[in-house]
């Protein structure tokens, strides 16, 4: 209950800021309705609905316990790490890291995850870059690629 209320309140605040910002957009001429009306039309009902969820939350949330939250945080860290390291490291190395680490976070045997990472990162590179012609750097910028 409490966490539904809290999250609904967050959505309410976002909708309120959205509506307020939306009402400030304007254009010099030529556009009759202008860029601000639609955000307001959308933002106000979003405020009302999220507000009603704060007052009458429909059902609570079961949050996972601490160890599972930790795994989820680790998964997000791995994904972000991939996004940031893809260009510097190049596709196969970064993807190896992604698959191996995520496999381990998901409860796979570490050794098997590493093997999977090696095989799949190369296979995906061959498939995308060589076969489908979607260019992916083999070596990243730190290797001069």
């Amino acid at each position: 209950m409490t966490s539904t209320r809290l999250l609904a309140a967050v959505i309410f605040v976002i909708a309120a800021v959205y509506t307020w910002y939306g009402s400030t957009y304007s254009v010099a001429f030529g556009d009759v309705l202008g860029p601000s009306v639609f955000p307001v039309i959308v933002g106000i009902p979003a405020m009302l609905l999220s507000g009603s969820l704060v007052v009458f939350p429909g059902g609570g949330i079961d949050w996972p316990d601490r160890s599972h939250l930790f795994r989820q945080a680790a998964a997000i860290a791995v994904l972000l790490g991939y996004a940031w390291l893809l260009t510097p490291l190049g596709f196969p190395i970064a993807t190896f890291g992604l698959i191996a680490a995520l496999g381990a976070v998901l409860g796979g045997d570490p050794l098997k995850s590493v093997v999977l990472g090696v095989v799949m990162s190369l296979a995906l590179w061959v498939m995308f870059d060589q076969i489908l012609g979607l260019p992916l750097a083999f070596l990243g910028s730190i290797f001069g690629g």
């Binding site: 596709f91 698959i99 995520l102 979607l134 260019p135 992916l136």
Partner: peptide, 29 residues
Amino acid sequence: WALMPIVAAVSFVGVFSISNSVFDLEVMI
């Protein structure tokens, strides 16, 4: 444990190879 990392990798590549944008990957996460 084996399937989802591959799905994640394919999703990332699918998005990245079209727009070449790290920003898109961050938006996705």
